[in-house]
């Protein structure tokens, strides 16, 4: 495999990390990578939000906690900080550092134009590592002849 294009469509911490790990892992294997952030998946590349992603504690049966507990004020913050500690132990960096690492490794980082327009974001709202805001057509052009991973 020479090229993989990873689509990120979720904005929760646990929704973003699998994509970043897949993208970084691909670069480590010498595979060309592009990341395409769409819908709520824009969160990790919005400058003012990327350091504040949280784990979704409601509507996730795999959390094994009752929804009413997951709703308590401060609970998502607590779970998020616990998960971040566990990830640091495994050498998994915070979102900003991880994205920088992936970008420095040569991966291309794109925001989905339709989502950017829908959420009324401007170019200056984005983290500086974002290479461009592109349409879905341009995404497919860049992804041509490679694999596409949707997360």
């Amino acid at each position: 495999m020479d090229r993989v294009s990873v689509i990120v469509s979720h904005g929760s911490l646990e929704g973003v990390y699998p994509a970043l790990i897949m993208a970084n892992g691909a670069r480590m294997e010498g595979i060309e990578v592009s990341l395409f952030f769409t819908f709520f998946g824009l969160e990790p590349i919005i400058e003012r939000r990327m350091d504040h992603l949280q784990v979704a504690t409601v509507g996730n049966p795999a959390m094994h906690i009752p929804t009413l507990i997951g709703m308590l004020p401060g609970f998502p913050t607590l779970v998020t900080s616990m998960m971040k500690k566990e990830m640091e132990k495994l050498d998994i960096p915070p979102v900003r550092e991880f994205l920088q690492m992936i970008h420095d490794a040569g991966a291309e980082i794109y925001a989905c134009k339709a989502s950017v327009d829908m959420f009324h974001f401007k170019k200056q709202d984005f983290w500086s590592g974002v290479d461009d805001i592109i349409s879905v057509g341009e995404f497919y052009e860049k992804a041509a002849d490679g694999q596409i991973v949707f997360t």
Binding site: R27, M28, E29, G30, M101, D104, A105, G106
Partner: peptide, 15 residues
Amino acid sequence: DVKTLYQLFPKGPAK
């Protein structure tokens, strides 16, 4: 740094 690692070993620095 990461950038330089990939310049030195283009097809996967760690590997």
